[in-house]
Deep mutational scan, measured.
Amino acid sequence: QRITLKDYAMRFGQTKTAKDLGVYQSAINKAIHAGRKIFLTINADGSVYAEEVKDGEVKPFPS
């Protein structure tokens, strides 16, 4: 399943989102408010992988 960072954070909370991605909650808040195009893939085992689309390139998040 693929979902935006904002939607994932709204569904699970910023604290869990940060923990799942290995970053601080403040980084999640800042990324959402900056309007960054970050998409999360939720794997069947429950693990989460995030990618950011920037300038036409897709890069892992966090980099």
Rank of each mutant, 00 (worst) to 15 (best):
R11W: 11
K59Q: 12
E57D: 11
E52N: 01
T17C: 07
K6Q: 13
V48P: 02
G13P: 01
I38S: 00
L5Y: 01
D45C: 05
N29V: 14
D45T: 05
A31V: 07
G46S: 06
E51C: 09
V58R: 08
Y8L: 01
P60T: 07
D55N: 13
K59M: 14
V58I: 14
T15R: 12
L40S: 00
E52R: 01
G46K: 05
R2N: 07
R36V: 05
A44F: 09
G22Y: 04
V58M: 10
N29K: 12
R11S: 09
V48E: 00
H33V: 14
V48S: 03
R11I: 15
T17P: 02
T41G: 05
F39T: 07
A50M: 03
A31Q: 02
G46H: 06
K6W: 08
S26H: 12
G13V: 01
I32L: 12
A44G: 11
V48W: 03
Q1N: 14
R2W: 15
A31S: 05
D7T: 04
L5E: 01
V23C: 09
G46I: 02
Q1S: 13
G35A: 10
F12M: 07
K16H: 05
A9L: 14
V48K: 03
S26G: 12
K30C: 15
K54P: 02
F61R: 02
V53C: 11
Y49Q: 09
S63M: 10
A50K: 01
D20P: 01
G35K: 11
F12C: 05
T17Q: 01
A31H: 03
L5A: 01
F61K: 02
L40F: 03
A44Y: 09
K37I: 12
S63F: 08
T17S: 04
G35E: 11
K59V: 14
D20M: 10
P62F: 04
Y49K: 10
V23K: 02
K16L: 03
S63Y: 10
K16S: 05
D20L: 11
D20I: 09
M10N: 15
H33A: 15
V23L: 09
S26M: 09
V23W: 07
H33T: 14
H33S: 13
T15W: 12
Y49F: 13
A9R: 06
R36Y: 05
K30H: 15
K6N: 09
Y24G: 15
R11Q: 15
V23F: 04
I42Y: 06
A9V: 15
D45E: 06
K16E: 06
F61D: 02
T17E: 01
Q25T: 13
A18M: 04
I3S: 06
K59P: 03
L21W: 01
Q1Y: 12
Q25R: 11
Y24W: 12
G22D: 07
I3D: 03
A27E: 15
S26P: 10
D7S: 05
D20S: 06
R36K: 08
A27H: 11
F61C: 06
P60Q: 08
T41Y: 15
A9F: 10
I28L: 08
I32D: 01
I42V: 11
K59S: 11
Q25W: 12
I3P: 03
T4Q: 07
R36I: 06
A50H: 01
R11E: 13
L5T: 01
T15Y: 14
H33M: 14
I28W: 01
R11K: 14
I32N: 02
L5S: 00
D45Y: 04
K37H: 14
Y49G: 06
G46P: 00
A50R: 00
I32E: 01
R2L: 10
A18Y: 02
I32K: 01
N43C: 12
Q14T: 15
Q14C: 14
I32R: 01
G56S: 07
A50I: 03
I3T: 08
T41D: 05
Q25I: 15
G13T: 03
D7P: 00
A50L: 03
A34F: 08
T17V: 07
K37A: 13
E51I: 10
S47F: 10
A34I: 09
K54T: 13
K30R: 14
E52V: 04
D55R: 08
S63K: 11
A34W: 06
S47R: 08
Q1W: 05
I32M: 07
I42H: 04
R11C: 11
F12H: 11
K54W: 12
G56I: 04
L40Y: 00
S63L: 11
K6F: 12
T4Y: 04
K16Y: 02
G22K: 08
A34D: 15
Y24T: 15
K30W: 07
K30D: 15
D20F: 04
G13Q: 01
Q25S: 10
V53Q: 09
A50V: 03
T4E: 09
R2C: 10
A50E: 00
N29D: 14
E51G: 04
S47P: 03
I38T: 00
V53W: 14
P60W: 05
K19H: 13
F61S: 02
E51S: 06
A31T: 04
L40N: 00
E52S: 03
Y24Q: 15
D45M: 05
V53S: 08
A44P: 14
Y49N: 09
E52F: 03
P62G: 07
K6M: 11
V53M: 11
G35V: 05
G46E: 05
Y8F: 05
I38P: 00
R11G: 05
K30Y: 10
V23D: 02
R36M: 08
